[in-house]
Design a protein around this nucleic acid. Structure first.
Length: 762
DNA sequence: TAGTTGGGTTTTTTT
DNA sequence: AACCCAACTA
C-alpha cells in the first residue's frame, strides 16, 4: 500500500483511494475533508499515473483554494503546479478571458461587484422610469441574480414571464441592465458562471478542449453549488463522470445566494452508481461541543443522517450566559478575553466572536477598544468597498477599460474638476446617440453643443487617462498609480477636507498601494487587468491572516471553513438568530437553514464554546427585548453550564484550565452587585481614556516624494503604525519613491512605498 | 456648481 | 442611529 494514504482512518482511506466514477463524500465539520481530497489527488498522480494537468479542483473561496494548493504542492511535489486549483469564479474568469470573444464580448471585460450592479440598476430604473418606491432596486437585482443562477438570460426570463404583468417592470429592467453591462463590456458575478456555461454550450469545440483536459474533477463545499455551477460541473464531467464532490448537507447556508441543497441530496440519482462515503469522525472539537452541535442539528428534517463523534473528551462544558443587555454582553466577552490573556490562558488569535449580522460587530468593537484588545473584523464593509478605494479603483479601471462607463462617471469629477451633473448628462446623451462610450464622448467634447468652457476640462481629463495608459506599459502598475495619486491630487483633497477620518482613509490608500506592489511581486507578468480581477474576486476572509495575534470578529457565514480554540457565539436570541426574516417568512425550511447556520457556528470551536444572549438589544433606534433563541433550548441542559435562569455573574465563576479541570474562582470581576449600579460605573470609568491627537501623514506632491529619501537603510529596525516592528530587508529606488521591503515580527513581510509607509526608524 | 439640510429608509447572510 | 438621496440655497 502506498504511504500517501497513510494515517487516514478507514472511511477517509475509502474515499481517498477511489479512482474512477462518481464519488460523493459527505464530510462532517472538522472531519479532515481537505486532507482527504488533497491526498486523493496525490494518490491519483503518484500511484495511478494521472498527469497533474488532467486534474481540476474547484472551491468557493480563495482561502480554500489556497489551502488546497498548498497541500497538493506538499504531497505531490514536482509537477503539482499542473493541477488546476481555483474557485468557481476565478476558473470561469480564466476560461472567459481566453474565449469570450467567441460569444461576442471583448476579452478585456471588467467584473462588476455588487455595488457596481446597484449603481447600474439605479441608472436603469431612472431611465425606464421605474419608481424605486414601488419596486426596490434590491428586489430587482435579487430577481435577476436568481434568474442568472438558474441560467435564465434576459430573453429567457422575458419569455418565461410574458404573461406575468406583475413582473413586467422586472423584465424591462433586466433587459436594460444586461444591455448596459454589455455596452460597458462588463460582467457581474453571476454572469461569470452563466456565460461560461453559455460559452460551453455555444462552442462545443471549446468545451471539448476542457473536457479533454479535466479527466478528474473535484468540487469542494458541494452543498453550496447553485444550478448554474452544477450545470458547469456536469458539462465538464461529460460522459467520463470522474467527478468527486465533497460537502455536508448540514452546512448548506447559502440558499439566499441560489445554492440548491438538492444538488447534494440528489447526487446519487443524477450520477447513478455513485460511491458514497460518510466522514463522521471529527478531529476538531471536544465531545461536549459536538454533543451540543448534534443536538441542535437533529431538529432538522430532510438531511442525510449523520452523527459526529470524536476521541477528544474534555471537562470543559459549553457555557451559556444570559446578559441584561447587548452592551453587557460585549463588555463581558471583552473582559473575559482580557483576563484569560493576562493570565496566559489564551492567545488573542485563538479567539473568535461570531454573530449573525454584521451590525452586531459594533458593540464588540467598542468594548474591545476600551479594553485595549487587538481585534480584526472580517467582512462588514469590505476593504474594496470603501469609498476612497472604490474611487482609486475606478481610476485604474478607466485606465484599463475605457468602455467601463460606470468607472469613468464615478471619477469624472473626483477630485473636483467643476464637471457637474448637467455636463455629465449632456455627454451621456451624446454618447448614447452616437453609440460610443462615455469616455469616447469626453474625448470629443469639443463637438458637443452647449458645453462651453467645460469641454476643455473633459478633453484634459481624457488625455490624462490616456497618459496613464501609456505609463502602465512603461512604468508598471504601482508606479503609474503613485503618479496618478500625485497628479490628480486625490490624497491632497482628503487632507485638505480635514475630516476626522482622513488619517484612516489615507492608511487605506496606503494599504491599496501595498496590495498592488504585493501583486507585482507575486506575478511578475501581471497586468492591470489581472490585478483588478484579483481585487474583484478576493474577499475579506481570504485576506485575514489568522496568525496575527488579534481577536477575530465575523458573521457565522464568514466563519465557515475556519476553526478557533475559543469561540464566543453571541446574540443567540429569537429575532436575531434565528433572524426575524426567517421566522416570519412562513417557510419552515428557512428556519432549518438558520439551524444549519447555528450548527456551523458551534462546530467552529475546538476547545471552548461560550454562547450568550442578551435580554435587551438596541437595533435601529429602538430597544428590543428578545427571548432566548430556540436553538439554545434545543441543547439539553446537561450539556450546558450556566442555565437559562441564571445570570451573567456565573459565567466567571468557572475558570477553565488547560488540563480541563473545573475550579472556582473567588474574584468575581464583573458580578452584578446587589443592585445594578455597577454597570454604569464600569462603563464610565473606561470612557475616560483619551485618544492621541490624530496626525495626518505627510505625503504626495512629487517634490516631497523624490527629495526626501528615507532615514533608514537595509538592516535597520523600523516601526509601522499598523504592523508594528520589523527589519528592512530591501530598498529599491523607483521613479518617484523608494520601494521598501520589511520583514515585520508579527505581520510578516510587506512591500510598501516609503512615502506611504511612514516607517519610523528605531 | 457646490454645499447644506431634511426626510425617508434601513438589516440577514456573500462569491 | 446612521446613511443616502433629493431638494434647496449660496
Amino acid at each position: 500500500m502506498s504511504d500517501i494514504l497513510e494515517g487516514l482512518n478507514d472511511r477517509q482511506f475509502e474515499a481517498a483511494s477511489h479512482v474512477n466514477g462518481p464519488l460523493l463524500i459527505i464530510a462532517g465539520a472538522g472531519s479532515g475533508k481537505t486532507n482527504v481530497v488533497t491526498r486523493r489527488i496525490a494518490y491519483l498522480i503518484k500511484e495511478k499515473g494521472v498527469d497533474p494537468y488532467n486534474i481540476m479542483a474547484i472551491t468557493f473561496t480563495n482561502k480554500a483554494a489556497g489551502e488546497m494548493r498548498e497541500r497538493v504542492d506538499r504531497y505531490v511535489g514536482m509537477g503539482s503546479e499542473g493541477v488546476w486549483v481555483a474557485t468557481f469564479h476565478s476558473s470561469c474568469v480564466r476560461i472567459l478571458r481566453r474565449h469570450i470573444d467567441q460569444i461576442g464580448y471583448d476579452n478585456h471585460f471588467t467584473i462588476y461587484d455588487t455595488d457596481d450592479s446597484k449603481s447600474v440598476m439605479k441608472a436603469v430604473m431612472k431611465k425606464l422610469q421605474i419608481d424605486p418606491k414601488q419596486i426596490k432596486e434590491a428586489t430587482i437585482l435579487r430577481e435577476i441574480s436568481n434568474a442568472k443562477n438558474e441560467l435564465l438570460g434576459p430573453d429567457d426570463y422575458e419569455e418565461q414571464h410574458r404573461m406575468d404583468f406583475g413582473k413586467r417592470q422586472i423584465v424591462r429592467a433586466y433587459l436594460e441592465y444586461q444591455d448596459t453591462l454589455r455596452k460597458s463590456n462588463a460582467l457581474d458575478f453571476d454572469d461569470l458562471i452563466r456565460m461560461t456555461v453559455y460559452l460551453f454550450k455555444a462552442c462545443p469545440e471549446v468545451l471539448e478542449n476542457y473536457r479533454d483536459r479535466f479527466e478528474y474533477i473535484c468540487v469542494d463545499e458541494y452543498q453550496d453549488t447553485n444550478t448554474a455551477q452544477f450545470e458547469l460541473v456536469k458539462l465538464l464531467a461529460g460522459t467520463r463522470k470522474n467527478i468527486c464532490v465533497v460537502g455536508d448537507d448540514d452546512q448548506s447556508i447559502y440558499k439566499f445566494r441560489g445554492a440548491n441543497i438538492m444538488n447534494i441530496l440528489n447526487f446519487e440519482n443524477v450520477f447513478k452508481g455513485a460511491k458514497v462515503v460518510k466522514l463522521e469522525q471529527n478531529y476538531r472539537s471536544t465531545q461536549n461541543i459536538l454533543n451540543a452541535a448534534n443536538a441542535v442539528i437533529a431538529h432538522n428534517r430532510g438531511r442525510k443522517t449523520k452523527r459526529l463523534w470524536t476521541e477528544r473528551e474534555s471537562d470543559i462544558p459549553v457555557y451559556f450566559n444570559h446578559y441584561d443587555s447587548s452592551r453587557e454582553e460585549a463588555d463581558s466577552v471583552a473582559l473575559d478575553i482580557a483576563r484569560l490573556h493576562a493570565k496566559g490562558h489564551a492567545e488573542y488569535n485563538d479567539c473568535a466572536i461570531l454573530y449573525r449580522t454584521n451590525a452586531q460587530s459594533r458593540e464588540f468593537e467598542e468594548s474591545f477598544v476600551r479594553e485595549n484588545i487587538p481585534y480584526y473584523i472580517v467582512g462588514g464593509i469590505n476593504f474594496y468597498a470603501r469609498k476612497e478605494i472604490k474611487d482609486i479603483l475606478a481610476y485604474l479601471k478607466t485606465v484599463d477599460n475605457a468602455s467601463d462607463d460606470l468607472a469613468v462617471r464615478r471619477i469624472i469629477n473626483v477630485p473636483k474638476r467643476s464637471i457637474g451633473a448637467t455636463t455629465v448628462q449632456k455627454v451621456s446623451e451624446y454618447a448614447e446617440m452616437r453609440m460610443i462610450s462615455f469616455f469616447e464622448a469626453c474625448k470629443r467634447a469639443k463637438e458637443i453643443e452647449g458645453l462651453g468652457k467645460t469641454a476643455a476640462k473633459l478633453v484634459t481629463f481624457a488625455q490624462m487617462i490616456e497618459g496613464y495608459r501609456e505609463d502602465v506599459k512603461t512604468l508598471g502598475i504601482s508606479a503609474m498609480a503613485i503618479k496618478l495619486l500625485d497628479e490628480t491630487g486625490y490624497v491632497d483633497e482628503i487632507k485638505d477636507a480635514d475630516e476626522d477620518d482622513a488619517q484612516e482613509r489615507i492608511e487605506n490608500i496606503e494599504e491599496l498601494m501595498n496590495r498592488i506592489t504585493a501583486y507585482e511581486e507575486q506575478e511578475p507578468e501581471g497586468t492591470l487587468s489581472g490585478f483588478l480581477e484579483e481585487v474583484a474576486l478576493v474577499s475579506d476572509v481570504d485576506n485575514a491572516d489568522q496568525r496575527i495575534p488579534r481577536v477575530y470578529m465575523m458573521t457565522v457565514h464568514s466563519a465557515k471553513g475556519l476553526e478557533f480554540g475559543r469561540v464566543y457565539l453571541c446574540g443567540m436570541e429569537e429575532g436575531v438568530f434565528p433572524s426575524n426574516m426567517s421566522i416570519n417568512s412562513g417557510h419552515p425550511e428557512d428556519i432549518e437553514e438558520e439551524r444549519r447556520l447555528a450548527y456551523v457556528a458551534i462546530t467552529r470551536a475546538k476547545d471552548v464554546l461560550k454562547i450568550s444572549a442578551a435580554r435587551s438589544r438596541r437595533s435601529w433606534g429602538e430597544t428590543q427585548y428578545n427571548a432566548v433563541s430556540r436553538f439554545i433550548k434545543e441543547i439539553p441542559e446537561e450539556y450546558l453550564s450556566g442555565d437559562l435562569k441564571r445570570i451573567a455573574r456565573e459565567s466567571f465563576e468557572y475558570e477553565e484550565r488547560p488540563a480541563g479541570r473545573k475550579s472556582f474562582n473567588e474574584e468575581v470581576p464583573f458580578g452584578r452587585g446587589d443592585d445594578d449600579g455597577f454597570f454604569g460605573n464600569f462603563v464610565k470609568a473606561r470612557k475616560e481614556k483619551k485618544e492621541a491627537p490624530k496626525e495626518i501623514p505627510v505625503l504626495t506632491k512629487g517634490a516631497e516624494l523624490v527629495a526626501g529619501s528615507p532615514d533608514y537603510v537595509v538592516g535597520d529596525r523600523v516601526e509601522h503604525v499598523k504592523y508594528g516592528c520589523g527589519t528592512v530587508t530591501e530598498m529599491e529606488k523607483g521613479p518617484k519613491d523608494y520601494k521598501v521591503t520589511v520583514m515585520f515580527d508579527e505581520a510578516g513581510q510587506k512591500i510598501m512605498y516609503a512615502a506611504f509607509a511612514k516607517l519610523k526608524k528605531l
